[in-house]
Nucleic acid binder design. Structure first.
Lengths: 340, 340
DNA sequence: CTGAAAGCGCTTACAG
DNA sequence: CTGAAAGCGCTTACAG
């Protein structure tokens, strides 16, 4: 077991000073060619690699990005991480990931932990509980300490920082409009409870599309699901009572459950019931029938978020004027079998 | 913008030495109660938190775990990360994640990067390319430097270290046996190319189950898929030519494709064709029909891997005798609609 | 009871 | 051309 070699050890072996070794390895012209080559050869032989922690302490930058997300077992968030990771890696950054499990306390704890020198900046999506409590002091604090934060998807207007989002409202509008274009009139919305910012925006888009098309907006066609496990009953009732001919679901889990429930009740998708889901994921692609979705390119969001953060990190001194950007990622409808 | 406060600043403000501040904050009895309280109050007021990087350098441990996996947009790997993350967090560790994208070079690069002081130990699953090349020098090197490595799922016998796996062979055996028990005789295997260790083991289990039941083993019923995109044609041919009544697929993507292809050809699942998939994921649960799977509890694997690594980390000095463990996680069949 | 010093592994301005 | 010193932010054995 040969432990990693340090500058100190090389210096001792070669009987030169640590400074000389350090400079030689960075190939500084300050040092004589002969010495430089000797040191470099020796270092190469012993596979010397500088210690990241020491560099971090010295440079006061870690070259790592902290990611805080509600959960990872979720196709959308995985694709975002994927997107972040690739851009980060290309730029010599690592990513360190913490999960809030949609809990406010875990989110705060994790942020505090990472903020104490472990990372250079954050990319995050708010936990449900944080959105519900609307308590963002932990984020403000981090920003006040001069650490850049980029929020994506589940963001809040109460914090000023860079953001990467999709236009949830207009994407929802587009989806509903497409249903209307196909002659559907009784369109239900299956959504989550209101305090999740994106849920509210999608509802707004839904309502606007209806009204713009002169379709009366019926409060009873909006179903708010608290818990995925129990949603089947709620959905069953919706199908039973309301004579609907289309559903816009705010995620694909709801959508696939709707399709299965409809099938059980003898309704055919898309003939009797058209279904569109928000967020294109693995389920929609492999469900039977496959589901038309609003693609919400997680990879692109991740790329963009990482790019923005890194840009800010690398130009920290230059533009201290904080002109925060809000990047809106394009969405588009992926037409599949669940709409005709 | 108030930057994070350091010991030095507190010392200066309070006109005491840095040592005194440090000791006071750790509540050392060495320091007078009055001084201690004064310092603590001040630190609390300024929300002092020690700098992780400085601590890491000093203690020569980072309290972070490096995870190297082939990809993250994959339900199984997400669940493993989830499992790791939770145990890690409970024990005060963070996780830093790097993706190899199934590339040997990226795997090597990422490991080297993290091994230079950024982390205390690795949890990893081999990239396809690494398994193909059977080149593990980067892992040996890390281990030789005294950094513990725990491998999971895609492991190799050529490296001695702790491992967390499932018994792929016997799990496959069990799956195929269950098909036989249901009266199926012409059972096809849809698998990946051979160099992925788990693929080979699952094939072994399949063959053994057939032979143990006196069913002739027909080489032509084993289909090796290189590329998911083009597999539909191959599968279509299988269904056309071979008069099979069941399929065992080594992953759920293959399984769902088989079902869809069978449907197109007018075959009904499970009546005409029973289907079992390895690895329980989101697709199997929401496919129509839902798919019977071999559950491969990623969360449990992650928990265990993290536990093993942390145990090793925390007892580093005590037991220098390296008695590596290989933990075998239980699997079980989750019966759903695709088998009757 | 308090503080100066050494050290973790590095870099760099400065002296010689 | 080479090296001693200071410093990044901390801890701790030791001196006073």
């Amino acid at each position: 077991m040969k432990r990693k070699v340090t500058l100190k050890q090389i210096a001792k072996e070669l009987d030169v000073s640590i400074s000389t070794v350090s400079k030689s390895l960075r190939n500084s012209p300050e040092i004589g060619v002969e010495t430089r080559e000797k040191v470099q050869a020796f270092a190469k032989f012993y596979n010397y690699k500088p210690n990241n922690i020491a560099l971090s302490l010295k440079n006061r930058k870690t070259k790592t990005i902290g990611i805080i997300i509600p959960e990872i077992v979720h196709h959308f968030f995985s694709t975002v991480i994927n997107g972040i990771e690739h851009v980060a890696n290309e730029n010599g950054y690592s990513v360190i990931i913490c999960l809030s499990d949609d809990s406010f306390d875990k989110e705060v704890l994790n942020m505090e932990m990472l903020a104490n020198g472990s990372i250079d900046g954050f990319i995050m999506s708010l936990s449900k509980e944080t959105q519900f409590k609307a308590d963002f002091h932990h984020i403000t604090e981090v920003i006040n300490q001069g650490m850049p934060v980029v929020m994506f998807d589940r963001v809040t207007n109460e914090i000023l920082c860079d953001k990467v989002i999709i236009d949830d409202k207009s994407a929802a509008y587009e989806a509903v409009q497409s249903l209307i274009d196909k002659g559907r009139r009784r369109i239900a919305l299956v959504t989550t409870v209101d305090y999740v910012s994106v849920g509210k925006l999608r509802t707004d888009g839904y309502v606007k599309a209806l009204l713009d098309n002169g379709i009366p907006f019926d409060e009873e066609l909006i179903i708010k699901i608290e818990d995925v496990e129990t949603c089947e009953i709620t959905i069953s009732q919706l199908l039973e009572d309301k004579l609907i001919d289309a559903v816009f679901a705010v995620n694909e889990l709801f959508a696939v459950t709707i399709i299965k429930t409809a099938n059980k009740r003898g309704l055919k998708v898309p003939e009797d019931l058209a279904v569109i889901a928000f967020t294109d994921g693995i389920i929609s692609k492999y469900s039977t029938p496959t589901i038309t979705t609003v693609s919400q390119s997680g990879a692109k969001m991740g790329n963009k978020a990482a790019q923005i953060l890194i840009d800010r990190l690398e130009n920290e001194d230059e533009n201290e004027d904080e002109n925060y950007v809000t990047e809106v990622i394009e969405t588009h409808l992926i037409e599949r079998e669940s709409t005709d």
